[in-house]
Design a binder for these strands. Structure first.
Length: 797
DNA sequence: ACTAGGCGGGG
DNA sequence: GTGTACGCCTAGT
């Protein structure tokens, strides 16, 4: 009684039932029902790479004798594979229970004649997806029969009876269409200290399902047992396919799990009865049957903004403007909870956080879904994994198709090599500057010169000088033939992307088709662009330092030639970094330059953006620009960090903005003077002066007195518990002696005790001078009394 | 110059 | 779960 079933794979896992592994494909059907698709015949395996002169029969016999009854070795079969492009003799060893692979691989690697054990560390569920060529979020079809399994919280369970085939045209559907999303956010009660789940309860949980109104659950009193129970009930009732949070993998989930344990509750929110969310690969939390996605992982890749707080990211993306929401600092939360009259504001704050989170999900998930479909990693893992892993999992799939053995991960020391060209910028403010970018420069270099660990000529190897590409400067050589692993994979990526881009032209930019294709081409671009960095990443399976070195050498050569071309055409070059050039925007000349670079150097260049005004320091990789669409790009300024006072951060940003928007340094100086004046007249709220630092060990263990340590010691005397990892908020007060003698916990200090001079000299002035220093502004000038009160001394100073 | 170790986001 | 992030920054030598 089997039927043809159409299903979309959401996630894959496995479990061992009655001594046999079964693959669990968490899926949905084309009628919208949620399903588990089981696959029972798949078995774990790995390879033993053999020495040239190994006695195959002898090795096979030794391996067979390792077999244990609990997970017998069911076959040991000689296979001819390829390893780094060359034919290789290997044995494929198949067993039953995935966990036993770890044991067998140790024993097999010790057998004489076995050079290396390979592919023994590929997770079983992914192994299945790779071998059957299945990708998460794509649609498949297979004959399957219904099964009666009680422990899955889905509408129906099927057992698949043949290898699934991809549904033709399935890639045109939006993979997320019809999947339900839950956004959530928790608040905890921790007055004047870092939250500690062993002590501090959860007080509020905000939830939102798709476009429904947010739900705010509130604790009763100071216990949170009933709150967490209600949370579990709602999740089970609403049964979301995707759960999103912001930094939820490292805060909300671990916190909820710990609180549940303390309260003796099971955080029973999964689709597999009897399991709870669990720490998994790449630091993500796995919620069986649901896709748990931490949106912070996406935000990390927004290089345009420095502070990746939920509030900033939501504001930047237009999801929730800062001035239209309740803004609270985390240390105010307990105060707003205790004060019943302020509690509605706190609840509004949670509501705005959860709406922001859902808004970010709508922005980010379409890209995540494409990256999942392209890389082959499930959506909940793909964003938690670094770019290297995302590419690597796709490479493993390509290797499987090419009958190539996958190299092991090896621990290596980091080896340095020469990187890209970074020009010395012309410091100062420049008007009307075009930024030219080479399109996928490194992947194109890799394809053009057939770069890779399987094509490189190793020292001592023979080669035909006519038949190799030689990199400038470093002189590494790569065989022109045959096509290497990376050339094969990358040229297909680049072609795939070109095809998508030309298909996009058929649609209007605001159509769903266009948006889907655009996210897909971005996902392919991310993987392609990761390939160079991947080869230079010491943990990469296909690591090749010389390859990475050769790529940057070709890149330097390319950019230097382009600069020479620009100069020969009379264009002023302001700055250049890796694959970009900043030139004076003379439209006609720039267009001619682009043409020339393509014709003479064979690489594609485009205008990435145009700055109305851009300000360079003499430091490389550090500039601020005002784009033609009126956005401020801050690149490389590090003063805007968590351990500066809010006032210093604010001042620096404001100074940048004034300098760029008005070009008026004088106005920026006046702004800083106004801040200094506000400080002197004690008009700056105390909370803007708090400096937060983390205790890295117990306060008693510090030998020297750092200010935050001194503040922590005062807190201990007052009866507060302090501990490693805790953030201590302190302010610097008036008096004599070292700064650390005058640092006090912020909540015991009154406004008039503040050491104004400290904040002027160590916070405001340095932050402002990071910018204004380049305009010849001195500390003295910032501190002199501005405008009408200018003294004679200022003129002679 | 180097290494070791903390930090980010969250509250 | 056939597993355990990463890259930047600073403090300390």
């Amino acid at each position: 009684m089997s039927d043809k079933i159409r299903f979309q794979i959401l996630d894959a896992s496995y479990e061992v039932v009655e001594g046999e592994p079964r693959i669990v494909l968490w899926s949905r059907l084309d009628d919208g029902r949620k399903a588990v698709m089981l696959y029972k015949g798949f078995r774990p395996y790995f390879y033993a790479l053999l020495d040239e002169n190994a006695n195959v029969n002898e090795v096979v016999g030794k391996i067979r004798r390792l077999s244990k009854p609990k997970s017998p070795i069911i076959s040991v079969e000689p296979v001819t594979k390829r390893y780094f492009g060359r034919p290789a003799k290997a044995l494929k060893i198949v067993t039953v229970i995935p966990e036993y692979v770890r044991e067998y691989r140790e024993e097999v690697s010790k057998i004489e004649g076995v050079k290396e054990v390979l592919e023994a560390d590929i997770r079983f569920a992914l192994r299945f997806l790779i071998d059957k060529n299945l990708y998460p979020l794509r649609w498949y079809e297979a004959r399957a029969s219904e099964r009666n399994v009680k422990w899955y919280r889905v509408d129906v369970v099927y057992e698949i009876e043949e290898d699934p085939k991809e549904v033709i045209g399935g890639e045109r559907a939006d993979p997320l269409d019809g999947l339900s999303i839950m956004a959530f956010d928790i608040e905890v009660y921790s007055p004047q200290r870092s939250p500690d789940p062993s002590r501090d309860p959860v007080i509020l949980i905000g939830l939102q399902f798709n476009d429904e109104d947010p739900i705010i659950l509130e604790a009763e009193g100071k216990g949170d047992a009933s709150l967490i129970k209600r949370f579990v009930d709602i999740v089970l009732e609403k049964d979301p396919d995707i759960i999103v949070g912001y930094n939820s993998n490292r805060f909300d989930w671990p916190y909820l799990l710990e609180r549940s344990k303390i309260n003796g509750i099971k955080l029973d929110v999964t689709r597999r009865i009897g399991t709870v969310p669990q720490q998994s690969v790449y630091g993500h939390i796995s919620v069986p049957g649901r896709l748990n996605v931490d949106l912070y992982d996406f935000a990390e890749e927004l290089h345009e903004i420095k502070m990746k707080t939920l509030e900033e990211v939501a504001d930047y993306l237009g999801v929730m403007p800062k001035d239209k929401r309740v803004n609270l600092e985390w240390w105010q939360i307990s105060e707003y909870w205790d004060d019943i009259s302020k509690r509605p504001i706190l609840k509004k704050y949670t509501e705005h956080d959860v709406i922001s989170t859902m808004g970010l999900a709508k922005k980010f998930l379409p890209f995540g879904a494409q990256l999942s479909q392209v890389s082959g990693l499930p959506l909940d893992q793909v964003m938690a994994a670094s770019v290297g892993f995302r590419l690597e999992w796709r490479l493993i799939r390509e290797a499987f198709k090419l009958n190539e053995l996958v190299p092991n991960r090896v621990e290596r020391r980091e080896e340095r090599y020469t990187g890209a060209v970074v020009l010395q910028p012309l410091k100062g403010v420049h008007e009307n500057i075009a930024v030219l970018d080479f399109a996928s420069m490194y992947p194109n270099i890799m394809v053009k010169y057939n770069v890779g660990p399987d094509t490189i000529v190793r020292p001592g190897e023979d080669y035909d000088p006519q038949n190799v590409y030689e990199a400038p400067e470093v002189r590494h050589k790569f065989r022109k033939e045959p096509d290497g692993f990376f050339r094969r994979v990358l040229s297909r990526f680049l072609e795939w992307r070109r095809n998508i881009k030309s298909e996009m032209k058929k649609y209007s930019p605001d159509s769903p088709e266009y948006r889907l294709l655009n996210e897909r081409q971005k996902a392919i671009k991310v993987l392609a662009n990761a390939s160079y960095g991947y080869m230079g990443w010491s943990a990469a399976r296909w690591y090749c330092r010389e390859c990475a070195e050769a790529v940057t050498a070709w890149g330097r050569n390319l950019i230097k030639s382009s600069i020479a071309l620009a100069k020969s055409m009379g264009l002023k070059v302001i700055y250049g970094d890796t694959d970009s050039l900043f030139v004076k925007y003379e439209k006609d000349v720039v267009e001619k330059l682009i043409e020339k670079i393509e014709k003479e150097l064979g690489f594609e260049v485009k205008i990435d953006k145009v700055y109305k005004r851009v300000f360079f320091t003499e430091a490389k990789k550090r500039y601020v620009g005002l784009t033609v669409d009126d956005k401020i790009d801050v690149v490389g300024f590090e003063a805007v960090r968590g351990d500066w006072s809010e006032l210093a951060k604010e001042t620096q940003l404001k100074v940048m903005e004034i300098v760029l928007r008005t070009g008026n340094v004088e106005e920026a100086i006046n702004y800083v003077r106004k801040v200094i004046n506000d400080l002197k007249e004690r008009r700056v709220p105390l909370e803007k002066l708090i400096i937060w630092k983390t205790l890295t060990k117990r306060a008693e263990e510090y030998e020297t007195d750092a200010p935050h340590v001194a503040a922590a010691r005062i807190m201990m005397k007052l009866g507060y518990r302090t501990y490693p990892g805790m953030k201590v908020g302190f302010v610097v007060t008036k008096g004599s002696g070292k700064v650390s003698d005058r640092a006090k916990p912020y909540f015991i200090v009154k406004q008039n005790e503040i050491d104004v001079d400290y904040y002027i000299n160590k916070q405001i002035v340095p932050a402002a001078l990071r910018i204004l220093g380049y305009f010849g502004v001195t500390e003295k000038r910032l501190k002199s009394v501005g405008g009408k009160q200018k003294s004679l001394l200022d003129f002679f100073g």
